[in-house]
Design a protein around this nucleic acid. Sequence first.
DNA 1: AAAAAAG
Length: 641
Amino acid sequence: MNDSNHGGSSGPQQGSRYVPPHMRTRSDNPRSNGRGGGSSSNWTASSDHAQRSDSWQSSRSDYGRSGGWNDRGYSNRPNFYERGSYGGKYSRGDQEYMPRRDESQGYWKNGVHHIAPRNPRIEHDLFGAPEDNDRQHTGINFEKYDDIPVEASGTDVPEPVTQFTSPPLDQHLLGNVDLARYTTPTPVQKYSIPIVEAGRDLMACAQTGSGKTAGFLFPLLSKLFSDGPIANLPPQDMNKPSYLRNRKAYPSVIILSPTRELTCQIYDEARKFAYRSWVRPCVVYGGADIGQQLRQIERGCDLLVATPGRLVDLIERARISLSQIKYLVLDEADRMLDMGFEPQIRRIVEKEDMPGVQDRVTLMFSATFPRDIQFLARDFLKDYIFLSVGRVGSTSENITQKIEYVEDEDKRSVLLDILHSSELGGLTLIFVETKRMADVLCDFLLSQNFPATAIHGDRTQRERERALDSFRNARTPIMVATAVAARGLDIANVGHVISYDLPTDIDDYVHRIGRTGRAGNTGAATAFFNRGNKGIAGDLIDILKEANQEVPSWLESIVRENRMYSGGKGGRGRGRGGFGSRDFRKYPQQGGGGGSGGDNWYRGNNSGGYPAPDMYNSYGGGYGRGSNPVAVQYQNKTSWF
DNA sequence: AAAAAAG
């Protein structure tokens, strides 16, 4: 039922096979021993360690031979690898050896960034096979994204960059960017790079699909690479036995994200770009063995990607200190608030030992910019740059949206029709509203001999990761999902998104269809609509029109008839026509539900000037009037990494 | 109303 139960009876079997992606090391993969679950004894652990060092020694000797290893075409940056090539500096007897790092880890000493030698196996793990262009899908078609409109506001907005170059980016980071085959910065990245470089705070209305993960990772890691760790870190004396050591980790970066899968995804990206550097990324999230995560952290943790609940847990256990934080990133902030994380987030940011707003750089990302996000921005950010990123054009062009009227009892057979008629190739993602339905439908599909899996919050973390994995690599090209997979998740090659049940929130719908139609590809999105969904009909029509899609006439009439009764809710002030979210410091707010033009609660800021920080103080607590005064942005999410 | 997340 719950992951913790697996640790007991069934733990050994499952634990021996499954190693979460971020825990995998070179020698973990072929682990054939039946032991090795979370509860395995110290004996197993230490013998593991011995094996690891052995295999390490042997692979290390490979470095001398350049073989085919250097033939991978890094010609554009010939100097990059010279520093990191295997040399005599880095040996066990040497003073510079830092035991808390393994050999694939760089280190910082006396103001110099020592880059670790390259490691073919890790490189393959992180970046894929060099010739495998399909798997390595990042970096394609970026040119296409030049059209995405970006609007930046705030004081002294730095000029956007146009290329990945050094400066402003660190040379080592550029090498990793090359390895990951990112060629051209996306619009978010063009802006975020100089903004973070300048040490400014950022509030960005953008989604994963816009390249925002790299958008914050690049400049932030780049700065860390050049600046090094904070000097006054309490020294870790690794010669002491572990029980006498300070077991707290002092990360420089915290990245918070709402779901476990998203957290893992960000972590995977971080690993790529932190490769061989002194920065060691870690990831913590609920539902997984905390002991394993603690051990990871103990080995060094400079950049931590976390879900809020687990992070609070670790702080309480005094295993994480926030006192050295230089960068705080809140990803999918609106989603985190929706999920009720505000208390945890406020606790982490305001009530623990994290440096104050003035003493850290804070980056906030959010698909929408409703009022509670504005308040969060007010409290967490200083003199920030507001970035509004337009849709990645493919919502309108690349994704064919279709709304079908299907009664609940007919849904199954219509679904089967669709699945039978669709040609092989792309993945099919089916969204349902309840966890129960996800299981029921998945079971039904299996009984009909469709290779399906399901992902939802009642499954264990292991099951979730397995499901996602088997979907990604097309072992089960059909996946039934709840809202857990609607946003942010990057699943390549999804050809068809089916909203078996429509969500009640149009944002969710938009996020769902954004799982398909990736860069350069076309996608299909089908939704089953019936009377139960009439609440979303109006918004749905808006979306369809905006995306130049066919609007069924029956849908129009449902809306008309709906308006008769509801007295015309007249939309919720969503910004149509490209840009949605606006810098509320600059623009007058659009009317919310009541609409009586009384939304100028921030008063007197139409001049485009930057508001004084205390502008909010005049506002007191009475902001309950009106609803949702802020335009919401619909942006496609063709995630490409 | 359901889902997600800390256990």
